[in-house]
Design a protein around this nucleic acid. Structure first.
Length: 666
RNA sequence: GGGCCCGUAGCUCAAGCGGAUAGAGCAUCGGAUUUCUAAUCCGAGGGUUGCAGGUUCGAUUCCUGCCGGGCCUACCA
């Protein structure tokens, strides 16, 4: 609602400026005043116009305020300070619309969106770094769906790469296991933990004797070729670990629709289809000499094409790319690197490849939702994946160059529109504080002790596993729940502890903005107080308590009839100085879809976490200040109950968009 | 060497496209009404926004240089 009114205000002003000043201002800046007393919107417009009109900002502001006229829903315009225009809404009107949950339908961009996230190598347990990825990705999916978009969720599986090969080497060469023995291990719980330890041992084994690396190379070759015993072992390992990842993520309410695998990109020859067009369009050039002699290369993403561009801007053919700026796509032995496969895969995503995967049902979630996986020969009936209008790849910042290279390849192929709708959803890694690393038994050098964080390493088996962290959170939450609610059944207490643990974890991963490295520490992550998920959950529980103890249904206070009954009372409680406190709460509650659209536009879910916290904080203050059930004035009591019902509804929605549910009691 | 990112309170982080007195949480200290109340609330202390310039009516935000830190820069994925 807040978002809709902002747009209406901006459009009205744009029209006003066009008519009265003959000015075209494409982007009218609308801010939020620092204090509720100043109104709901603030316009620094007069400062901007001062130069153009050669007049004092204050004078321009006065003129605009005098001439702007009425806008439905708006109370008045005021000049403040040196030329700010503060805008006030008709509080009661907005409140009634909000109580009735009435909000004009926002236009939804057409076309399907594809979000790819998680993409964990299926050779070891997921760790906290993967959690950040999956939680960011899943939350972004929820935000897009909140905004009405049709979204497919994909999790790319590199099942034929070095990392899987390493674990295969571990089982076959170090552990000397047979395929049947590995199969038995894979069927046991937490097989991914077994792989986690083994993977670290394999890395060590390579270091002990460099000639062991030949075993890796041979294993990798066999896996890529397929149709042999080693490939079968690799497949059984990667499928088993993948299932474990799906289980781990399901604990956090994270689901996928489709799991495209590298094995199918290989075996269905996606690359061959891409290679010919890449050559024809000159995106790839052949190096006859130099360091990359015999390779097909392209310009590294992010390096400038500079003056090589002709005047029409499209022609890159014939341009020399310096060796420094070359990215090898096809090696001199004719094999293709991962960036090449990624280019083909992304052509498929946009429906530009002319080939498709086969599809098989792979995993059914407890709620009945099916997750599909790629296959050489698929089932006849399957959903249609790929061929989308827009994509988001949730991949950490270390891969931004590779991502940019893929984008540039699409652009070079003439698919500029696809390239424009390709978003690398980039975020920084999760590392450990030195203290946390020490707790995990990692021996720190003096230099490392002084650093603010230590990078995790799957290769070394150094990190916090996702399931371990969840277990720790659940047991910590469980202690609290047991102490507070001994009257509840075992199952109820377990359920509440899980909800709190998930709330704490998801919120923790979302509260940091993407470019910030998270220095992980158990103390912070296990906190349930202050700027945390449980804080926001608790605010909802408090609101629910009021309705439960009062014997009211919160939904009854959010409906249309509330508007009809309470119109007069609403204004007397909301308007004027005395209404500021409660109005601030209403206004915050009205901003949900505004914040969601900001999150999508900036690909930054942290704003939503901040919003949840702010709304919860305002509610807690309100809760403390206004006793509701004991309120003697019936009209006022109903107003306060409506306020509580609206805030409760919005908080539940906001938390749901973050994948956080709210326990019945806390 | 080149590219990208970061530097804000003791600690961890915010600050929407340049805007009003730079805000939270944690930690510390002091308080909270027989109530829907403590996973909460109120208050206090705590800042040369890394440094130096520039642009601007206005800079944490944009530009330049420097200092410090991280990541990327494989015919690995």
């Amino acid at each position: 609602m807040y978002r809709y009114l902002e747009r209406r205000l901006a459009e009205h002003l744009r029209e006003f400026l066009r008519r009265n000043y003959g000015l075209e201002i494409a982007n009218i800046v609308v801010e939020q005043p620092p204090k509720i007393e100043f109104g709901e919107y603030a316009l620094p417009l007069a400062f901007e116009l001062a130069k153009k009109l050669r007049q004092a900002p204050r004078k321009i502001a006065d003129e605009i305020v005098a001439g702007v006229g009425a806008i439905p829903g708006f109370e008045k315009f005021e000049v403040a300070g040196g030329g700010y225009i503060n805008v006030r809404l008709k509080r009661t009107e907005l409140a009634l619309a909000l109580a009735a949950d009435r909000s004009p339908a926002a236009e939804v961009a057409p076309g399907k969106v594809l979000v790819e996230h998680s993409s964990i190598n299926p050779n070891k347990a997921a760790h906290i770094g993967h959690l950040r990825n999956a939680i960011l990705g899943d939350t972004f999916v929820r935000l897009l769906r909140f905004a009405g978009r049709d979204v497919d969720v994909q999790n790319y599986i590199d099942n034929t790469g070095v990392q899987v090969a390493d674990v295969v080497v571990g089982f076959l060469h170090i552990e000397q296991k047979t395929r049947a023995q590995i199969e038995a291990l894979a069927a046991a719980p937490r097989f991914d933990y077994v792989c986690w330890d083994l993977y670290a041992r394999v890395s060590h084994w390579y270091e002990e004797n460099k000639s062991n690396l030949q075993v890796r190379a041979a294993t990798l070759r066999s896996i890529e070729e397929g149709n042999n015993e080693i490939a079968a072992v690799a497949d059984l390992i990667s499928v088993a670990v993948l299932k474990r990842h799906l289980e781990t993520m399901d604990r956090l309410d994270i689901e996928y629709d489709f799991l495209p695998r590298e094995s199918e990109i290989l075996h269905l020859h996606f690359w061959d289809a891409a290679f010919s067009t890449l050559k024809e369009t000159g995106v790839l050039t052949y190096e006859a000499e130099g360091k990359n002699a015999g390779c097909w290369v392209m310009r590294r993403g992010g390096t400038s094409a500079g003056k090589a561009l002709t005047t029409d801007g499209a022609e890159l053919t014939g341009e020399r790319i310096t060796e420094e700026e070359q990215k090898v796509i096809v090696r001199s032995n004719g094999t293709v690197g991962y960036v090449g496969k990624d280019i083909a895969y992304h052509m498929w995503k946009f429906g530009l490849l002319g080939r498709d995967f086969g599809y098989r049902k792979f995993y059914r979630y407890p709620n009945g939702h099916d997750c599909w996986i790629s296959a050489v020969e698929g089932e006849k009936v399957h959903p249609h994946f790929g061929d989308v209008a827009e994509i988001y790849n949730v991949i950490d910042a270390r891969q931004s160059e590779a991502q940019n290279t893929v984008i540039e390849a699409l652009r070079g192929l003439g698919h500029g529109q696809a390239a424009d709708r390709y978003t690398h959803f980039s975020y920084e890694m999760v590392a450990l504080t030195p203290r946390c690393a020490a707790e995990l038994g990692y021996k720190l050098s003096e230099e490392e002790k002084a650093r603010s964080w230590i990078e995790v390493s799957g290769r070394k088996g150094f990190g916090v596993k996702a399931d371990d962290l969840l277990d720790a959170l659940i047991s910590s939450a469980r202690q609290e729940v047991d102490g507070r609610h001994p009257e509840l059944s075992e199952a109820e207490r377990a359920g509440i502890a899980a909800q709190i643990a998930i709330g704490a974890l998801r919120y923790f991963m979302l509260k940091f903005t993407k470019p910030s490295v998270i220095a992980f520490d158990f103390k912070d992550a296990l906190s349930f107080e202050g700027d945390t998920g449980p804080y926001a959950q608790y605010a909802v529980v408090r609101a629910s308590n009021i309705f439960r103890k009062g014997g009211f249904d919160p939904a009854a206070f959010c409906k249309d009839e509330a508007g009809e009954v309470f119109t007069a009372d609403f204004s007397s409680y909301l308007e004027g100085e005395s209404g500021n406190d409660v109005w601030e709460l209403w206004l915050a509650a009205a901003k949900t879809s505004y914040v969601v659209s900001q999150c999508i536009a900036t690909t930054e879910p942290a704003y939503l976490a901040k919003h949840a916290f702010q709304l919860a904080q305002l509610f807690n203050t309100f809760y403390h200040r206004y006793p509701i059930l004991s309120e003697a004035d019936e009209g006022r009591k109903k107003f306060l109950l409506t306020t509580t019902a609206v805030v409760r509804r919005e908080l539940i929605r906001i938390l749901a968009a973050m994948g956080i549910s709210v326990p019945p009691v806390m």
